[in-house]
Write a protein that binds this DNA or RNA. Structure first.
Length: 232
DNA sequence: GCGACAG
DNA sequence: ATCTTGTCGC
């Protein structure tokens, strides 16, 4: 897979913010039938120990068999600082590299991070969706933007994530009595479908299976040879 | 001006 | 993201 929209990544912070405002205009929130989704992509990233580069892991998980069908890892130089709201500029260069290795294009991608639940409406999940023009949504482990009431403690409970009087995502309890995850649309999908998919991909862990697997895979970054056994 | 602040 | 032990609970 290759990005359809290409732009510079070595930008100053003000330039990056302006680019986000432009790209935010291209974000599409549209209905997507959950029954048409079988191959679910999962993406997660992590910096190298020496902080000189960033690794990105991509997995493809079959929601029918509930098994991993493909996985890859890649890296790219780390050039951008961590600034809340500008995570895309640190991680997407590595994501572009793993995407190049994907053989079977997934029906949708779940990205570790936020979608439109972002100060300018374009978190990393939305940014990836826009430049690759594929369905994506974000599943973050903590809050970046918005307000919410804690959802009930039972698995499957949800509570709307709000900002400026609008619903920008859902806070979802994927496991009973465990901290919830923050789901927001990225591109070419609707919140209801993203929410239902998150719940149907979860159960064993706090994170939905695709993201959980990508998380475990990227954690093996520096030793990428002994991973196969431990992952399957 | 004072907090908040994905990974 | 990462530095970190034991411990509580399903």
């Amino acid at each position: 897979m290759q990005p359809l929209i290409e732009h510079k990544w070595d930008l100053s912070i003000p330039e990056a913010i302006n680019l986000q405002k432009e790209l935010a205009l291209k974000v599409q929130v549209s209905p997507l039938d959950i029954n048409s989704l079988r191959y679910i992509g999962g993406i997660d990233c992590a910096p190298s120990t020496d902080m000189s580069k960033y690794f990105a892991a991509a997995v493809i998980w079959d929601i029918h068999t509930r098994e991993l069908v493909e996985y890859h890892i890649a890296d790219a130089p780390l050039t951008f600082p961590y600034v809340p709201g500008l995570l895309s500029f640190r991680e997407i260069p590595a994501v572009i590299e793993v995407m190049k290795k994907i053989n079977k294009k997934p029906d949708i991608f779940i990205v570790d991070g936020h979608g439109i639940a972002h100060p300018r409406g374009i978190g990393i999940a939305a940014h990836i969706g826009v430049i690759f023009d594929v369905p994506t949504f974000g599943c973050g482990k903590s809050l970046l933007y918005g307000n919410y009431q804690d959802p009930a403690h039972e698995r499957g409970s949800t509570s709307p994530l709000m900002a400026k009087g609008k619903v920008i995502g859902n806070v979802i309890r994927t496991r009973s009595n465990v901290r919830p995850v923050f789901v927001s649309v990225g591109h070419k999908v609707d919140l209801k479908t993203a929410t239902e998919l998150t719940i149907s991909c979860s159960g064993r862990f706090r994170l939905p299976e695709p993201t959980h697997l990508a998380d475990k895979l990227v954690a093996q970054k520096e030793n990428k040879s002994v991973i196969i056994n431990k992952l399957l």
